[in-house]
Amino acid sequence: MSKKLLDETSKFLSYVLRHEPQAIGLELDTDGWADIDALISGAARDGRTLDRQLIQQVVDGSDKKRFSTSEDSQRIRAVQGHSTKTVDLQFKEKRPPATLYHGTATRFMASINEQGLIAGSRHHVHLSQEVETASAVGQRYGTLVILKVAALQMLEQGYTFYQAENGVWLTEQVPVKFITTL
């Protein structure tokens, strides 16, 4: 399979499994799971050709491990990043490392300097343990800025952290006082 097809499929899966399942008539349960056959049928109605092999290649080949399939290979979900209100993933609280990172673009800095990092339409703010990962995410949005988040200090002041199965750290917000520019 071509890299272009895998990338386009990954973006499509992100769109329908995180944000707009109704765009193809797909239903997600509260844990974000969708029936793979329903996904394939919905994609076909939308003019897209998906099959189980292509879907599994995207799941297995994603360096960010954005998706997972059920043990019986009948369902798929995005592991985090949802904005749809029907999904309410229950992550377990976890103690973060002292510092986490967030990649963003310079054009968002005025807002961040006022409000801190907020989830916006998503359920959580996404943070990473490595500068490299934050860089890869942030450069997609424009001129890169890496933010350093005092995660352990936040935890000590009552903020909650979770870690998704793909390693992404999640929290509801990051106030300005816990952010510095790298």
Rank of each mutant, 00 (worst) to 15 (best):
93 E>L: 14
110 A>G: 00
94 K>C: 07
123 H>R: 12
95 R>P: 08
123 H>Y: 03
95 R>D: 14
106 T>K: 14
92 K>P: 06
114 E>H: 06
87 V>I: 02
101 Y>K: 01
88 D>M: 06
101 Y>E: 02
89 L>A: 12
100 L>F: 05
97 P>Y: 01
92 K>I: 05
101 Y>M: 04
108 F>L: 06
107 R>H: 13
110 A>R: 12
98 A>D: 15
110 A>W: 02
114 E>T: 05
111 S>E: 10
88 D>T: 04
112 I>E: 03
107 R>T: 07
110 A>I: 07
117 L>E: 03
118 I>M: 11
96 P>S: 02
100 L>Y: 08
95 R>Y: 10
109 M>G: 01
100 L>Q: 09
109 M>C: 03
112 I>Y: 05
122 R>C: 08
106 T>L: 08
99 T>H: 04
104 T>M: 05
89 L>R: 04
120 G>Q: 06
109 M>V: 10
109 M>W: 01
116 G>M: 02
115 Q>S: 08
97 P>N: 05
103 G>P: 04
106 T>E: 15
118 I>R: 15
105 A>S: 11
90 Q>D: 15
116 G>I: 03
119 A>N: 12
89 L>T: 13
89 L>E: 12
101 Y>H: 11
106 T>S: 11
115 Q>R: 14
99 T>W: 03
117 L>D: 08
103 G>V: 00
119 A>V: 08
89 L>H: 08
109 M>Q: 02
88 D>C: 12
123 H>N: 03
98 A>M: 10
103 G>M: 02
122 R>S: 12
112 I>C: 00
106 T>G: 00
98 A>V: 10
103 G>F: 02
105 A>T: 03
93 E>D: 14
118 I>E: 12
100 L>I: 10
122 R>H: 09
110 A>V: 05
91 F>Y: 15
90 Q>I: 14
113 N>T: 13
114 E>I: 01
100 L>W: 09
87 V>T: 04
114 E>F: 02
88 D>K: 08
93 E>S: 12
122 R>G: 14
122 R>K: 09
112 I>A: 01
102 H>D: 05
110 A>L: 06
92 K>L: 14
101 Y>W: 10
95 R>I: 09
116 G>L: 01
89 L>P: 06
99 T>A: 00
113 N>W: 11
94 K>S: 08
87 V>C: 03
105 A>M: 04
94 K>H: 09
104 T>H: 04
